[in-house]
């Protein structure tokens, strides 16, 4: 058997399965999006682009789009910032391999938690009456703070949980990457009068630019799928303060409206927007990393 045939034969089943799963659901969504189906009645008609045109006049949709964008930016930037900070801190202060490994192990625990479990844990921590955080706030004379009920705080509070889960995990990855860097350029920078933070800002982190971009992309994709976390913690509220696109689609299509066609149109738009956005970011990132 030639190499080419072997590669084809082994790849075709898996790619076929994945393609079927993706295409069938997308085709289904397109089918729904051009109808006016609701969960309440079995009748439906072909309505063409009506659902899409309606979306463009839906202020709640644009609110959800904005919340989604903020959510992406805050969680990706926050995760990377926390990861970089902790990785450098551990790299510089904890020199014993045993302690380093213990810290890494501890940092891996949050990301191993199911999202829903993490969400429940933090709902308790954030609770105005029972939560540890408000107890601590009380000690310094603030509060009680309505972390999840205050519209100006809710999104950040939920994002903090996401950053807690992924930032600690990424800091372990980043620490291991720092450990693999050659020692010589770091020592050269020490001789070049660079302070510790300058060594990392100007030498080690730029040397890790490629991996950092990859981590950012992974996190950006992952952040798109935070439905479960937000759903358990706030359900999109208070009001629509934490309602991202997927939450709004769920509310529209399944929870209250049952307007399945409208929700499908929204999902398709989300698919197009993210595909275009990620293609641009990916291209830019690759150019920047080279």
């Amino acid at each position: 058997m030639t190499r080419k045939r072997f590669v084809t034969l082994t790849l075709v089943p898996a790619i076929g399965l994945l393609a079927t799963l993706a295409l069938v659901s997308i085709a289904g969504a397109v089918w729904f999006a051009v109808m006016n189906r609701t969960l309440r009645s079995p009748d439906y008609d072909f309505v063409g682009a009506y659902n899409f045109l309606r979306l463009l006049r839906d202020r709640r949709f644009f609110n959800a789009l904005e919340i989604s964008a903020i959510w992406e930016a805050v969680t990706v930037a926050g995760t990377l910032a926390l990861a970089v900070f902790l990785a450098v801190l551990i790299f510089e202060t904890v020199k014993k391999p045993l302690y380093r490994n213990l810290i890494c192990f501890a940092f891996l625990v949050p990301v191993l938690l199911p999202r829903v479990a993490a969400a429940f844990i933090w709902r308790f921590l954030y609770s105005p009456s029972l939560g540890v955080l408000n107890y601590l706030c009380g000690l310094v004379g603030i509060g009680p703070v309505e972390f999840l009920a205050d519209p100006s705080l809710a999104l950040i509070s939920v994002a903090a949980v996401d950053i807690w889960q992924w930032g600690l995990f990424f800091s372990v990855i980043l620490l291991k990457l720092l450990e693999t860097l050659p020692r010589d350029p770091i020592e050269a920078a020490m001789l070049d009068n660079a302070r510790t933070w300058e060594i990392h800002a100007f030498v080690t982190l730029p040397m890790l630019r490629g991996p950092l971009i990859s981590l950012a992309l992974v996190k950006a994709v992952e952040s798109l799928r935070s439905f479960d976390l937000i759903f358990v913690m706030t359900g999109g509220g208070p009001g629509t303060a934490t309602e991202t696109l997927d939450l709004y689609a769920y509310q529209m299509g399944i929870n209250m409206g049952g307007r399945i066609s409208y929700a499908s149109a929204m999902s398709l738009l989300l698919l197009v927007v993210t595909t275009v956005a990620f293609t641009i970011i990916w291209k830019a990132g690759k150019k920047w990393a080279s």
């Binding site: 050659p182 010589d184 350029p185 020592e187 050269a188 920078a189 020490m190 001789l191 070049d192 009068n193 660079a194 100007f202 030498v203 730029p206 040397m207 630019r209």
Partner: peptide, 18 residues
């Protein structure tokens, strides 16, 4: 090292690759 007034050339050159 930075305050000793020494400069060093490494076997691996240790240039900043970026």
């Amino acid at each position: 090292p930075g305050e000793r007034g020494v400069a060093m050339v490494f076997q691996s050159y240790a240039l900043y690759p970026h």
